[in-house]
Design a protein around this nucleic acid. Structure first.
Length: 870
RNA sequence: GCCGGGAUGGCGGAACUGGUAGACGCGCCAGACUCAAAAUCUGGUAUCCGAAAGGAUGUGGGGGUUCGAUUCCCCCUCCCGGUACCA
């Protein structure tokens, strides 16, 4: 039984009904079916922060449009959803509101799940998972054991940010201007034992595979290549001139430019380097400098922007070729965690070395010629290009490769160097000194010897009922958790560190394939679904998450758990959602931000924004830049309020229409109104059409020119939208094309049987093309248009080739590259006919008269350019 | 600092492989309907000159390649993302 279509478009009335139908009939539940082509569509799962933000809405709408489109192609589509549930914000909420992180997280999940359902996403909810659930994390604990057996896990010390007041490790984000964000105390660097995964063992495969990942954006592949940073160079040992200092006899460095070795004029070591520490012991000034460096942040972004500073150490090294004594400096920009913590400096050919040499008046010796073969000018900066060697004695006159080889060979013969491949990529530090994460499944005996927890004793369950005192992880002070026994019953102590949350997000996509498996990490179903056909998420994950996930998947492959080499066949990176900011400066010089919803904007008679006032007091506020929606800038727009007001379809339509997925999107409330208006007018047009009654079958031979044009437009739109959705992922232009078609349909009168038949075809097409984007409205309109099958079972339309044929086309005519006319020619007009039609135009004649035509360029079907002598 | 990306009307954006710059939408202006408002509909809307036809200028700035450049190359400015413990 079909109900008549209501006259008004009321999303609040129809959307819950359509959603209930999807839910009750489990329309989006999928099973493995080897007979059918599968499509695994995945969006990066959310951190359950409290409420959905616009970034989520955008991400999940893009995924849903692709999933629903693939379903209309007849594929077996898996689109799951889950929760990246461990993380720092839950601990912050616990500290602030005294709510246990587990409780806070689970209630956030409840609320956000309701919001996702209200947006009508086509998820198979039976596969839902949360990473804080022991049924999930027990398997990564189990896999950690497998990695340990394979030698891919090790323990070593690493530097962390230490808050001396709160007695806790701080994340880089929690260090503001060198101080702890809560205590305000200057942060110290501290070396503590940490757990690492040997991702560098996979560096070459992670790098080489990128060349074959053609369905990933080039930008992401380039960023990952640069991050891995494979370089071939020479590891050189410089002998110390002074007898053993701090137990050291030589200084080892790695360089990719051994051809510049003769230009090395000094060495630089990290403040934590044993040589620097040894020298600092007997020198108060040096000691003070090293101590000062100990308060420097561990973040690369901060360190690299610091003023480059250093101090000379009271030691020199011997140049391995010339035996010249080179001074050794300690410098704040050399990092102990990179390579050997020491570098050789060639100021003539490295800009950073050059600046340091200038500042401290160290020698600058050019040893590479410029393009003309002359000594380069190094008075205003380093000469960094490769070239032939000069000032290098017997190594003079060689190009890069020859100089590299000659110098490497000479040093190797003396046992002072080896050729080496080095990576910028460092091993993955997976341990965190935090509570709200997956416990690292390791125990220590009374002697401090560690061993992984036995597989049959997993999971190591995180206690969820915790009392929070202070800011440090409560795990350490929970004897019920820390006290345990070994297999032989002897007393032991549990590891209290937890995993980096990237651990959980590195394999959840495989778990979605078999989320209900209680007996193993994954099972054979993973072979049906993996790899993910398209993975959609923010560009900010271009390196870390996406590189860790690739590594983890390969490690799982080598453990025989999955078959694919790469987890994500195609990657779509989404831009940010932005909004203008409004603020006032307070007396202390701080910015007080106003939410756009609390601000009235004044415009001039052209719609230009000229001023803004706070609604609360009517006083002016400063209009700031457009920035990513965030709590700190108070420029977030709550999706819930918009869903309540306009319905899910309008919010979905607007987010898809406002910008292409990979660009940032600037939110505009009035443009949302426009999306709503479009749905209302489509509804009205359909209502008007169906209320007249049944439509005769379409007779394509009985159409006049106007109806033929309209019909061609219908089928051209199918071609355009299909290409936009399936190949280009440009939903904004797809929607624009549908809007144009709807405009054309409503402008063309439907006052006879032929016209009504074309309108029916047009409306059927529009509803099918919009079905993935506005599925609720489309569902109701599809029924109203007389279709018995559910829209979720309908097929994507295919254009009628005959309807696409054109008899005449428009040709642009340029004279010397400037457009002068548009002329009509037959669709099959040859070059001569195009030239003739172009030259015959009156306005073209005005610009060619009395001048010599030198050349005529004809671009078939598009343009004629007549080149004349001026 | 380094790596990656971006900049087009008042605004979001379009122009896909070097071929009509500004599709579509918002906003704004004018008009229709209305007692009025909302809603809806019609027309206009890059800038400058012009009644119009049409012309000139114009895609962050400067240079180059080309018959032709938003698109390709070189230099620069500003903005955004990442920078290994935010996720």
């Amino acid at each position: 039984m079909q109900e008549p279509l209501s006259e008004r478009y009321e999303p609040g009335a129809i959307e819950p009904v359509v959603q209930a139908h999807w839910d009750d009939d489990k329309v989006f539940k999928v099973r493995e079916d080897p007979e059918r082509e599968k499509f695994y569509c995945l969006c990066m799962f959310p951190y359950p922060s409290g409420r959905l933000h616009m970034g989520h809405v955008r991400n999940y709408t893009i995924g849903d449009v692709i999933a629903r489109y693939q379903r209309m192609q007849g594929k077996n589509v898996l689109q799951p959803m889950g929760w990246d549930a461990f993380g720092l914000p839950a601990e912050n909420a616990a500290i602030e509101n005294n709510v246990p992180p587990a409780q806070w997280t689970r209630s956030n999940i409840e609320y956000m799940r309701g919001q996702l359902k209200r947006l009508g996403f086509a998820y198979d909810w039976d596969r839902e998972l949360a990473t804080c659930d022991p049924d999930y994390y027990r398997w990564e604990q189990w896999f950690f054991g497998r990695l340990y057996e394979k030698g891919l896990v090790y323990r070593a010390t690493a530097v962390v940010n230490w808050d001396p007041v709160d007695q806790t490790v701080l994340a880089n984000e929690q260090v503001i201007d060198g101080c702890g964000w809560r205590s305000g105390a200057p942060v110290e660097r501290r070396e503590i034992p940490q757990w690492f995964l040997r991702i560098t063992a996979y560096a070459d495969e992670l790098l080489d595979e990128l060349d074959r990942m053609d369905d990933w954006p080039d930008a992401v592949r380039t960023m990952q290549r640069n991050w891995i940073g494979r370089s071939e160079g020479l590891s050189i040992r410089f002998a110390l001139n002074d007898a053993s200092v701090g137990g050291l006899e030589e200084l080892e460095v790695f360089t990719t430019r051994p051809d510049t070795l003769l230009g090395a004029t000094y060495m630089a070591v990290a403040p934590e380097h044993p040589l620097a520490l040894a020298c600092a012991e007997n020198d108060t000034a040096l000691g003070a400098f090293v101590e000062e460096c100990r308060h420097q942040s561990t973040s690369e972004a901060v360190i690299e922007k610091l003023e480059k500073r250093g101090m000379a150490l009271p030691v020199t090294v011997r140049h391995p070729l010339t035996s010249e004594a080179l001074p050794v400096w300690v410098a704040n920009f050399v990092l102990m965690s990179y390579g050997t913590g020491a570098v050789m400096s060639v100021p003539a050919h490295d800009q950073r070395d050059w600046e340091f040499a200038r500042k401290y008046d160290l020698a600058i010796v050019p040893v590479i010629a410029d393009a003309e073969g002359n000594a380069p000018d190094v008075t205003s900066g380093a000469h960094t290009e490769r070239g032939r060697t000069i000032n290098s004695g017997k190594f003079d006159g060689l190009d890069f490769a020859a100089a590299f080889d000659a110098i490497a060979t000479a040093l190797e013969r003396e046992g002072r160097a080896e050729r080496r491949v080095q990576y910028r990529l460092r091993d993955w530090l997976v341990s965190r000194q935090r509570y709200w994460g997956c416990p690292i499944p390791v125990v220590y005996d009374n002697e401090g010897n560690m061993q992984p927890e036995a597989a049959d004793r997993l999971p190591v369950t995180l206690p969820e009922d915790v009392a929070w005192e202070g800011v440090a992880s409560p795990l350490r002070s929970m004897p019920d958790f820390t006290a345990t026994t070994l297999a032989d019953g002897s007393p032991a102590r549990r590891e209290t560190d937890t995993f980096d949350t990237f651990f959980e997000s590195s394999w959840y996509f495989s778990r979605f394939c078999c989320a209900d498996n209680a007996d193993g990490m994954v099972d054979e179903r993973v072979d049906y679904w993996m790899p993910v056909d398209i993975y959609i998420g923010g560009i900010e994950h271009a390196v870390l998450h996406l590189l860790y996930a690739r590594f983890f998947h390969k490690a799982m492959r080598d453990a025989g758990l999955v078959k694919s080499d790469e987890p994500f066949k195609r990657l779509l990176t989404q831009g940010m959602v932005c909004k203008e900011t409004y603020f006032r400066e307070t007396a202390q010089g701080r910015k007080q931000y106003f939410n756009p919803a609390e601000v009235d904007v004044e415009t001039d008679d052209k719609g230009r924004v000229i001023a803004a006032r706070a609604r609360s007091d009517g006083q002016p506020v400063t209009i700031g830049p457009v920035e990513k929606m965030s709590k700190s800038k108070n420029n977030g727009v709550d999706p819930q309020a918009l869903i309540d007001r306009y319905g899910a379809d309008t919010v979905r339509l607007y987010t898809m229409f406002a910008a292409p997925p990979d660009q940032s999107l600037e939110w505009s409330d009035s443009a949302v109104e426009g999306a709503f208006r479009f749905l209302k007018s489509l509804w009205r047009l359909t209502h008007e059409h169906v209320s007249v009654g049944p439509v005769d079958a379409l007779d394509v031979t009985a159409l006049d020119d106007a109806l033929k044009d309209l019909r061609r437009h219908i089928h051209e739109t199918i071609v355009k939208v299909s290409d936009d959705v399936s190949r280009r992922y440009k939903f904004n232009t797809a929607i624009a094309a549908v809007m144009e078609l709807v405009n054309h349909l409503s402008r063309t009168p439907a006052d006879n049987a032929a016209a009504r038949a074309v309108r029916q075809e047009g409306l059927d097409t529009v509803v099918l093309l919009l079905a993935p984007i506005v599925p609720h409205a489309a569902h109701v309109l599809w029924q109203a248009l007389g279709h018995d099958e559910a829209l979720t079972d309908a097929r994507w339309p295919v254009a009628d080739e005959n309807a696409l044929v054109r008899e005449a086309i428009e040709l642009v005519v340029q004279v010397n590259g400037r457009k002068r006319a548009v002329v009509q020619v037959a669709a099959d007009a040859d070059k001569a006919a195009c030239e003739q039609a172009a030259l015959a135009d009156d306005n073209v004649a005005r610009f060619t008269e009395g001048k010599t035509v030198r050349k005529i360029i004809v671009v078939p079907g598009k343009l004629v350019n007549i080149v004349v002598q001026e």
